[in-house]
């Protein structure tokens, strides 16, 4: 598999890319000179590249996964929506204050037949980050204000009224921690979503596609199934903030990432995530189509299962699932 050279290299990927570049050079030379003795050194180098790639990506530390989850080329919510659905109509505004570009959502036709189920209308929404300086600022780095959460719940309640299933995509470094967000009731907006989502009478599938930081993620993250991309992270706090509070320094983010057990495999063993969706080697951005295929298939199969349940069974199972989360003993 030939890797396309990317502008954004993570530090720990550098040795691999240097080696890959060298390999590329040697191949060019061979093409020009048709040198026979180069063939053996090329194949040796190919082997080294392949070994190094495997050793890097199969032994990612938790912090390295956080970096992949934040990779600037990673597919964001609108990319997933475009790939998984047709005819997406984005709806805007919370009908109370304004529209928040950090959360996008609307009705669309989920291309289920392509993923082993059937095409159907869904409400699909998620946190949205920007790709360049302008759009990052516009999207507030994917950090919603209260009106974002209120728009989300407005759309989800509407979906429930029309009997349409809900898909939410989580990708946020947290709810926006600003003065105005506080004034407009950031906490109340998130709390209300947790309450309402717990009782919406339609299937809700939650997919953590990138970053899942704290209440800012959970605010659109209560559902019947929790799916998570292999290199996404989800926890009660970001590693940086955890480091700042517990270590009283910003320098312990790697230790904090390790301590928080915030990766998809960690969350499976904690009983929070139901299914990990594999990513192409190196991360979702290396081959977005493969990523979307995995996400689409996981959504389709879970949706099919959930749509067999009666509304009553669906809601009972949803509440029981959250009720069972926690680790304690009765001494």
């Amino acid at each position: 598999m030939q890797q396309k050279k990317k502008a954004h290299l993570l530090d720990f990927e550098r040795p691999l890319f240097e080696l890959e570049e060298k390999l590329e050079e040697m191949r060019l030379i061979r093409n020009e000179e048709e040198g026979e003795d180069l063939a053996s050194s090329i194949s040796a180098l190919e082997e080294r590249v392949s070994d190094l790639r495997t050793s890097i990506y199969q032994n990612l530390t938790r912090w390295q996964r956080v970096l992949i989850a934040r990779h600037p080329d990673r597919p964001y919510s609108l990319d997933h929506i475009e790939a998984l659905t047709e005819g997406f109509v984005e709806l805007h505004g919370d009908r109370l204050f304004g529209d928040d570009p950090a959360i996008v959502g609307g009705f669309a036709k989920f291309k289920g037949s392509r993923y082993g189920s059937k095409d159907q209308t869904v409400m699909i929404l998620g946190h949205q980050k920007g790709r360049d300086t302008m759009s990052r600022k516009y999207r507030r780095f994917g950090m919603p204000n209260p009106e974002g959460y209120r728009k989300a719940i407005r759309l989800m309640k509407m979906a429930a009224r029309f009997g349409k299933p809900i898909i939410t995509l989580l990708d946020t470094p947290g709810a926006f921690p600003g003065q105005e967000a506080e004034e407009r009731g950031q906490a109340q907006a998130i709390a209300m979503n947790l309450f309402e989502m717990a009782r919406l009478p339609v299937p809700i599938i939650v997919v953590v596609i990138g970053e899942g930081a704290s209440g800012g993620a959970l605010g659109i993250g209560v559902g019947d199934r929790m799916l998570m991309l292999e290199n996404a992270w989800y926890s009660v706090i970001s590693p940086e903030n955890c480091s700042a509070i517990l270590w009283r320094s910003w320098d312990y983010k790697e230790e904090a990432a390790r301590a928080l057990k915030l990766t998809a495999p960690d969350l499976i063993s904690l009983g929070i995530v139901d299914e990990v969706i594999g990513e192409p080697m190196g991360g979702a951005h290396r081959d977005p189509d493969v990523t979307f295929e995995g996400v689409g298939r996981a959504i389709a199969s879970n949706l099919t299962e959930l749509q067999k349940l009666s509304t009553e069974d669906l809601l009972t199972a949803r509440i029981n699932n959250f009720d069972s989360m926690g680790a304690f003993k009765e001494a």
Partner: peptide, 25 residues
């Protein structure tokens, strides 16, 4: 707030308590 030392499990307590409140309501 939520207890950092129990990670995402602490976060899920927010959903758990809110879910029970729907029943009270």
């Amino acid at each position: 707030g939520a207890r950092m030392m129990e990670g995402a499990l602490s976060l899920m307590q927010m959903a758990k308590t809110s879910a029970h409140l729907t029943k009270l309501s």
